[in-house]
Nucleic acid binder design. Structure first.
Length: 437
RNA sequence: GCCCUUGUAGUAUAGUCCGGUCUAGAAUUCGGCCCUGUCACGGCUGAGACGCGAGUUCAAAUCCCGCCAAGGGCGCCA
């Protein structure tokens, strides 16, 4: 029996992944590996279903091979050598008649959750046993989709001439304002975990013009909701010579491509999750902040210009505007110091949020590139420009006009998979209560 | 930081409102026996639980209080 050949690779353990087995191989001797998902003993023969990451196969064990079945609990890892043969099974088009079974690793029962999901374990137990939870095909489907989402994002941004970068997560200054940062001791100095690559990605437009980063960032807020985590994955772009409408278009086509790619590449995963990924049509609806206030007025919610849109308000808007939509032209005072004002209406800003229903997925805008303007905005917001000296120096070196956004990948995942709790779509979520595993 | 809800075998649950019927039930998992075409196989059988502490009561899984844990909401989230 020859070992599995995959390009120039050969695998020591098996001749085939399970998905590579076909009814046309009846009579052929094969070896494959996987986890025992189910077992039905019928006297002098036993049916196993064995799963690897590619699929599931039925194995029949009888006669002498039955000696291998002792001490073989479910979820144990086994290597099967056998012959492909025809089957009478309902759900399989062939089966493997085992000649030998090698126990590679025993699963020690009781297991902390039901790994195949017949009894749906609660999220707490599943997160405590996350690796085992990935044997549940619903859970595995989420992270297979996530892989395709990431691949799609990299493809789209690469095609649009964005260069992938990685910026520091350990930073020396917490002076940006806004969210609370985690602090840590760094060789005797005070350091912080970055909440965003904002300043670095802006600086990188000088040398690389269009950059993007996909990384985890940190926020030390005791938020207790289904949409917040202390450690989250952000997709960030920054592009020289673009303004906020340009980067909105980038975001829009990125989202549409993600939907198209996952719709096409993740058929099995959609079945597992009992969802249909339906690509949205571009352009997404765009309403201004002022129009959002008008809409809310119709629902007897009276806000003054300059009031932020609270969660309750966004829920109302989300019912009016199903799916993806942009809220643009926010009051300047609601936006961070680096956001550019509108040329004709300086109380407004060249900014946008991308929403899905009530959920904010992304925010971005045209950035200031004049260091003088940034300094005065910093002062307006009660921040000390001297704390930004490193950053502001770069603005003296030929900072191009630029725009960008940050997109919450985990929130996007929860929208795509139609799973409300963000913890479901993150392998090992970190929130104010959970630090392990 | 504030508010609400929930803690019963490994898992997921019934019972809690209205204390006694609970020696805590069914399922699944796990162990043993039987079974040569299962497919959530089936049959027989065994093991396994009231989060912790204090209280009320003749009597507490059930009511009260505290603690712990979990889930959710608000706020926070440049």
């Amino acid at each position: 029996m020859s070992l599995k050949k995959r390009g120039s690779d050969s695998l020591q353990f098996k001749t085939h992944d399970i998905e590579e087995l076909t009814p046309a191989m009846v009579g052929k001797e094969i070896a494959c590996c996987g986890w025992i998902e189910d077992m039905r003993k019928l006297g002098k023969m036993t049916f196993l279903t064995v799963r690897d990451v590619t699929g599931i196969a039925q194995v029949i064990v009888k006669e002498e091979a039955q000696k291998y079945l002792e001490e073989l609990p479910r979820q144990s890892v086994i290597r099967i050598k056998g012959k492909v043969q025809e089957t009478k099974a309902k759900d399989f088009s062939f089966e493997i008649n085992a000649q030998s079974i090698e126990l590679l690793a025993k699963a020690v029962h009781p297991l902390p959750i039901d790994p195949i999901g017949r009894l749906e374990s609660n999220i707490d137990n599943r997160l405590n046993a996350r690796a085992l939870d990935l044997r549940n095909q619903k859970t595995a489907a989420i992270f297979k989709i996530r892989h395709h989402v990431l691949a799609s994002i990299r493809k789209t941004l690469g095609e649009k001439k964005f260069i992938e970068i990685t910026t520091p997560k350990i930073i020396g200054s917490a002076s940006e304002g806004g969210a609370n940062l985690f602090s840590l001791e760094y060789f005797g100095k005070q350091a912080y975990l970055a909440q965003s690559p904002q300043l670095y990605k802006e600086q990188m437009t000088i040398g690389l013009e269009r950059v993007f980063e996909i990384s985890t960032f940190y926020r030390a807020e005791k938020s207790h909701t289904v949409r917040h985590l202390s450690e989250f994955t952000s997709v960030d772009i920054e592009a020289a010579f673009m303004d906020y409408t340009d980067v909105m278009n980038v975001l829009e086509s990125l989202i549409v491509n993600v939907y198209n790619d996952t719709a096409n590449n993740c058929k099995k995963e959609q079945e597992e999750l009992e969802i249909e990924i339906k690509p949205p049509s571009a352009p997404f609806e765009r309403i201004t902040y002022a129009q959002a206030l008008e809409l809310l007025k119709k629902h007897d919610i009276k806000l003054n210009f300059g009031d932020d849109l609270q969660d309750a308000h966004l829920r109302v808007l989300g019912k009016e505007l199903a799916g993806f939509y942009f809220i643009v032209d926010w009051p300047l005072k609601l936006k961070p110091f680096y956001i550019h004002e509108k040329d004709d209406e300086p109380d407004l800003s060249k900014s946008f949020d991308l929403q899905f229903g009530y959920l904010e997925l992304s925010s971005g805008g045209t950035r200031l590139h004049s260091p003088e303007k940034i300094k005065s905005r910093l002062k307006e917001q009660g921040l000390d420009p001297s704390k930004f000296a490193d950053h502001l120096r770069a603005f003296e070196w030929g900072m191009p006009p630029h725009a960008g956004w940050g997109l919450g990948l985990d929130r996007l995942m929860s929208v795509i998979t139609k799973i409300d709790n963000i913890r479901e779509v993150v392998l090992y979520p970190r929130d104010s209560e959970r630090l392990s595993p």
